[in-house]
Design a protein around this nucleic acid. Structure first.
Lengths: 128, 128
DNA sequence: ATTGACTTTGACGTAAAAGTCAAATTTTCA
DNA sequence: TGAAAATTTGACTTTTACGTCAAAGTCAAT
């Protein structure tokens, strides 16, 4: 156990470039260890990268992703900050709910397009 | 009926800038009429803008949005193209399903964060 | 007729998120 | 140990989706 991942193992697994992972390190999102100058990724880093990429897929900026990571790393202790965080969470939640709705609507439209295609195909050549 | 919308009416309604709408026109997404040089938007344009912005919210690029619009404007008639389109639709569908999953997972995490905040707030100051 | 609000065009600028390239190291392993 | 393969750093470039002027035109109302 306690395996190390090389940078290219991870780039292959996740379909990103080394530049991307180095960029995320420069931006303070990940902190792989070093042996000499070479980066060594542990599975905690790997999981973090998975979360970063998930954030990326749903349109979070690097700054937003960093913010989320930092909240996880050290949650605020003071009441005012906690309330502020909750407000921000609420905003994000609304944004994501909107996005989900947008996606569902678009999925429906894609369904219609597909159906129209099938109908049209059936009309034209009644084969495969 | 058959009302015209001015550009600023629409920018106010949708919270975008005039630059954005002009940009969408330059990119061939919308084609408002003109009286002289002034743009006149009909409700068809308005609806189209709504769809463009929905596409934008879920992370579609201008090129993708344009492609979708064009498919709606003149659907392909030839079998090969229809099949190609269906393949592209299928890809989009998978992408959106992934994105929806990402969003749902993130919403759950936000729920956890919120709960943690509430717990912590209760621990600290047993007030509002 | 003039003020003020709105609009257009065109050119240039910018921020985010990497991509690309070159040169220097470092590691691997035959 | 020596060559090939992988990695790092740093600088520069690119793409997307607009933002930001500036200058000029338009239109309605006073």
């Amino acid at each position: 156990m306690n395996k190390y991942y090389t940078i290219t193992e991870l780039t292959r697994e996740f379909g990103v470039s080394t530049r991307t992972l180095r960029f995320y390190e420069d931006e303070g999102l990940i902190h792989p260890e070093r042996r000499g100058r070479t980066r060594l990724f542990r599975s905690a880093d790997r999981r973090l990268i998975m979360e970063i990429l998930r954030g990326r897929r749903i349109g979070f900026t690097i700054a937003e992703i960093r913010e989320i990571i930092q909240v996880y790393r050290d949650p605020p202790g003071e009441a005012g900050q906690l309330r502020l965080l909750m407000k921000r969470v609420e905003e994000k939640r609304e944004e994501l709910n909107q996005k989900r709705k947008d996606i569902e609507e678009t999925l429906e439209e894609l369904g219609n397009v597909e159906e129209a295609c099938l109908t049209r195909l059936a009309e034209i050549g009644v084969g495969t």
